[in-house]
Computed example of a mutant assay.
Amino acid sequence: MLMLCIFQPSPHMSAGFGVLIMMIAQMHFGDSSRSLDVFSSVALLMCLYAIMQESWRMAYLDELTGLPARRALREKFQKMGGLYTVAMLDVDHFKKFNDNFGHDTGDAVLRMIASKMSEVSGGGSAYRYGGEEFSIVFTGKYASDARPHLEELRKSIASSPFVINRVSRRKDDERTMPRKSKSVTVTISIGIADSSGEISSPWDVLKLSDKALYRAKKLGRNRVIV
């Protein structure tokens, strides 16, 4: 099990190793029950580890973006205290991406945003909250301290051209025509709040950051509002 903790193989790899160990043990030891029992136990542990790892991944990681999901954020909130900042992010005009270019393009936009968020500076932890909404938590920071890192994230996303490849077809022809590429700009709006006031829980801080996000959208989007 120590080896599993160090190397952290994928669930499929762990299960595969377990089956392989069982086969090798059976071929090598035959009817030697004691040795076979040891290898069988190791194989069983590896299979159980694979099941537990996959269950954790399904429960705590967002399948589309690979970011920790809302359940992971909920557990984070249960352990938080003292000073922290919570940011709520929303993709501007996200519905237009789905309506104009299809849901596959919308999914690609979300994956791009998540990739940028996973590299946020300042020690922020990124989560997918749901739909086109995301959250970033900064522990030990005031909103004013976290804001420059969020501005950097916003500018990075806005300055990164997003290329959409579209397949066109003639109305009277079912053959696929060459792909047409189009570069568009993706922007995000961000609302932030911290726990420095008289706030009872991280969820209250999140509500304040959500209100700040709403103000950011009302003021024209593509901005960070405290």
Score class of each variant (00 low, 15 high):
Met3Ala: 12
Leu4Ala: 14
Ile6Asn: 04
Ser10Phe: 10
Ser10Gly: 11
Ser10Lys: 12
Ser10Cys: 10
Pro11Arg: 07
Gly16His: 04
Phe17Tyr: 13
Phe17Pro: 02
Phe17Cys: 15
Gly18Cys: 05
Val19Gln: 14
Ile21Lys: 01
Met22Pro: 03
Met22Arg: 13
Met23Asp: 11
Asp31Ile: 09
Arg34Gln: 12
Val42Gln: 05
Ala43Gln: 05
Ala43Pro: 01
Met46Ile: 11
Met52Arg: 12
Met52His: 13
Ala59Phe: 07
Leu61His: 11
Leu61Ile: 15
Leu83Tyr: 02
Thr85His: 03
Val86Gln: 04
Ala87Lys: 00
Asp90Ala: 06
Lys95Glu: 05
Asn98Val: 04
Phe101Asp: 04
Asp104Val: 11
Leu110Tyr: 06
Ser115Trp: 14
Ser115Asp: 10
Val120Cys: 02
Gly122Met: 05
Gly123Tyr: 06
Gly123Asp: 00
Gly124Cys: 01
Ser125Gly: 11
Ser125Met: 13
Tyr127Pro: 00
Gly130Val: 04
Glu133His: 06
Ser135Ile: 14
Val137Lys: 04
Phe138Gln: 02
Lys141Leu: 12
Ala143Lys: 10
Leu153Tyr: 04
Ser156Asn: 10
Ala158Ile: 07
Ser160Ala: 13
Ser160Asn: 13
Pro161Phe: 09
Val163Gln: 13
Arg170Met: 12
Pro178Arg: 09
Lys180Glu: 14
Ser183Trp: 05
Val184Thr: 08
Ser189Ala: 08
Asp194Arg: 07
Glu198Tyr: 12
Ser200Gly: 08
Ser201Thr: 01
Asp204Ser: 11
Val205Met: 06
Leu208Phe: 12
Lys211Gln: 13
Lys211Asn: 12
Ala212Met: 09
Arg215His: 12
Asn222Arg: 05
Arg223Ala: 09
